[in-house]
Write a protein that binds this DNA or RNA. Structure first.
Lengths: 125, 125
DNA sequence: GTAAGCGCTTTCCTTTAGGTAAGTACTATC
DNA sequence: GATAGTACTTACCTAAAGGAAAGCGCTTAC
């Protein structure tokens, strides 16, 4: 039962466990919010222009999209490429760094599905 | 680069990929917020009473704590045990289900730390 | 009987995330 | 010259999360 923390403390000591907690909270912070993950996945699916993304993620407003793109640029999930056509073409694409999310997203998805099933089963009794 | 989605689509088809996305968002939803994870970890560390938790998680208000405990009970992370002492003693403890978070938290922690390092390094250049 | 502790609840307030609508500066097309 | 598209920005509004302060019903201790 107490394996999570106990295992952690066996190897690391109490303070490093709190530290690892901080990293979890960091991760949840950069991935949190309504649009960050859908946006990253949309760009992993293929580079896109502003309006293409807006169309792909139905319901996002241009203000929010502009904000999220800036944020994802800062966190190096997304690169903004400007092409000197007339008029300029701006293309957003997912970076290699986005691909590092793979394992995390896989684990989250597996756990999320199992959890949903568990709660659903408890409910119907 | 596009391995995440491409791998997913090779095995599952586009709709199941969107489904797995939904599970990720579900997971982030049940774990999201300022106090849920600290609270779960505090109780995994050992069963506690209301005031003990409040002391352990410095800064949480009784209102928020009561809300979060109810929520975690619904999601079966926490069991509320009432002992018929005088006055009654109420003890919150983490369930076995809390332990299923282990892998997810580990992955989030590893990724979170690596991400932090990456961004920190980019900043100082 | 007064004070203090427990496990909360209630009320009110602030902050933040997110949404709506409109506008801007540019260019291309009819 | 009007219309439409691209990539945004600005101003304003709403809803939800979270925090602060006080109170409540209970009990034991002094």
């Amino acid at each position: 039962m107490e394996t999570m923390i106990k295992d952690c403390e066996m190897v690391l000591g109490k303070e490093e466990c709190a530290g690892s907690m901080k990293h979890v909270l960091d991760a949840l912070y950069v991935l949190g919010g309504k649009w960050k993950l859908p946006l990253i996945l949309s760009l992993i699916d293929g580079p896109k222009r502003f309006n293409e993304i807006q169309h792909d993620l139905k319901g996002i407003s241009p203000k929010i999209l502009a904000n999220e793109l800036k944020n994802l640029e800062l966190n190096e999930f997304v690169e903004r490429k400007v092409y000197a056509t007339t008029p300029v073409t701006i293309i957003y694409e997912a970076t290699e760094h986005s691909a590092t999310l793979r394992k995390v997203l896989y684990e989250l998805s597996v756990w999320g599905e199992a959890h949903r099933e568990k709660i659903r089963n408890s409910m119907k009794r």
